[in-house]
Each structure stands twice: as C-alpha cells, then as structure tokens.
Amino acid sequence: MVALGEGAISQLRRGVLEFCVLALLRDEERYGFEIVRTLTEIDGMVTTEGTLYPLLGRLRRDGAVETTWRESPAGPPRRYYRLTPAGDAALVAFSHEWGRFRDAVDTLLERGAVR
C-alpha cells in the first residue's frame, strides 16, 4: 500500500505553489508580506511562511516576476512583485494543464468511488 505521507502532499503542494503565487499577481502587484499572508490564510495551502521567500526569489531569477521597491505609508520600504509577460504566459499554460489534470484525477477518483 502506498503511504500518503507528508512528503507526497508537500511535494504536490510545492509543485503547484509557484503558480498560485503567479495567479495572485495576475491582476495587481503586491508586496512580499501581502503575498505570503494571503497564501497562508487560505486553508491547506502553505504551512510555513518563510519558505515562500525562496520561492519568490526563484520566480524573480527565472524572470516570471519583476520587483520594485516602494515607500510604504508607515514603516520600511516594501518590495512589490509584478507579473512579467513570461510569467503571465506560464500562468496561462499552467491553468490549461491544471484543468485537464484535475478533471482526469477527479474522473479516476469518482469512478473508483462508484464501484
């Protein structure tokens, strides 16, 4: 029997997470803390906030997002993240694939349940 350990779930989550970040940035730019808090407040999405920063850094290095530092109304300057055309294209492609993948998995899970 296959054990559905923490490893399998966190691996699945890790693979999908970067596209969730891109999706958050589709319509507006956001600063790091805002992205992190929004994601952690969605149940089952992220367990620790800190590991999202390496992900943001990777997206920046890969050219999927770009950043600008801006003064905040109160407190230290904030780094704002914005989707690049390449990031936008990656998000569109993922949305399409994810839809197919989700439907395929759902079909299999439901067929199993009917039997």
Partner: peptide
C-alpha cells in the same frame, strides 16, 4: 513560528 525554522527556509533555497 509562522515563518518556520531558518534551516527550512534555507533548504527551500
């Protein structure tokens, strides 16, 4: 606590 262990954050890099 919400941030997690520094070692885990570095591991994610």
């Amino acid at each position: 606590d919400r941030l997690g262990e520094p070692e885990d954050i570095v591991a994610a890099e």
